[in-house]
């Protein structure tokens, strides 16, 4: 088996590691607004991952939907609830 130069697996592993860190951080942060922003960062790393997997259409959609609109509506909901969670 060989692998091509355009699929750098080291870069891939770095992005996946950042995604796992962002996912754990989004679930363990106490403040819900910071949790929402970390979710946006998670979506952005997902978008990078998909660009790296040659799925440009999917990455474009995720950059517009996941990183922008999702974050905005989560923050918009966070203004009506207690922004500090217990766990």
């Amino acid at each position: 088996m060989t692998w091509d130069a355009n699929l750098l697996w080291q870069f891939d592993m770095l992005i996946l590691l950042m995604m796992v860190i962002c996912a754990v951080a989004a679930l363990s942060l106490k403040g819900l607004v910071s949790s929402a922003v970390v979710t946006g960062a998670y979506s952005f790393f997902t978008c990078l991952m998909w660009t790296h997997m040659m799925a440009v259409d999917v990455a474009f959609t995720e950059a517009a939907v996941g990183a922008a609109v999702s974050t905005v509506i989560i923050v918009a909901t966070a203004q009506y609830i207690n922004p500090w969670s217990k766990d």
Binding site: A26, L27, L32, S35, A36, T39, I74, T77, A78, I81, S85, K86, D87
Partner: peptide
């Protein structure tokens, strides 16, 4: 425990 965390 928090419902917002469940959604995330």
């Amino acid at each position: 425990n928090n419902l917002m965390k469940k959604i995330i």
